[in-house]
Amino acid sequence: MAVVGTLGPRLDRERFQWSSLLMLAPGLVLLVVLFLGPVLYAFYIGFTNLALVGSRSRDYSFTGLENVARMLGDYVFIKSSWLTILFVVGSAIVGQSVLGMLLAILLRNAVVPIRIVVGSIVIVAWVLPEITVALIWYAFSQAGGTLSILLGHGGTNFLVLVPMLIVSVANLWRNVAFSMLVFSAGLRNLPSEVLEAAEVEGASAWRRYRSVILPLLRPTIVTNLLLVTILNLSEFTLIYAMTQGGPGIETTTLPIYVYQEAFVFHQLGYGTAISLVLVLIGAFFSLLFVRASRRQV
């Protein structure tokens, strides 16, 4: 615009207020010292041979890609990576999301008392402390536990027979409320006219779901998948409290392997390097979902 040039500098440029820095400062300090600091430190430790005890606990050094090389030859690490992906895909991406969606849809159409009671039970399972969930599922799947009696195998300890499955189901049991709540909110926000129109046209329930609800819910689904993946990738407490990664290494997912390498085998450097892989996997999945959400626009 011609006028603008003749009027001198803009008078309404946003100004930085020092009071904002004053308010931000305490939080920033804490984050820098105890969050950003450790993150950067982790990237350093991951490339050293730091140990918890012994000479390497003081006298450690930068070892470049040595930890990476070690991982590639470490069959526990490779198995652990697969278990992690199995856990995330099976328990979280498929199990939790599908059951969460199913619950959200069913609850919408259920009679009020059932909706309230079942909805509350599912949410209580989510709110319970993880350690409690670990305990009750431990009890549930023990030899002589409720599960074995229900299945008529009184003496079978399912936590030994199919440990990964039990751990995944317990995790699913605990987290499904999260996806259920996300999807319920998504369903509630759908334009009701669209659903009614489909109903009036006489579309069957399944068709309606496939060709109307699902596409409309797509952004919600992508968000849910992203969050669920990131949350479950770092799941430690539930699995560790139930199995400590065992029997053998049958349930040693990466977070547990990180802990064991670092604090049981005293390999702080190697353990941290493994945790960086965990971050990489998380970043990979996030990018995947972000791309998926872009494509649809």
Partner: peptide, 16 residues
């Protein structure tokens, strides 16, 4: 940052 796994921070924080 809120999505970073705690496992990653445990070792450096322990060291600190």
């Amino acid at each position: 940052a809120s999505g970073l796994p705690v496992s990653m921070l445990v070792v450096p924080v322990y060291q600190m």
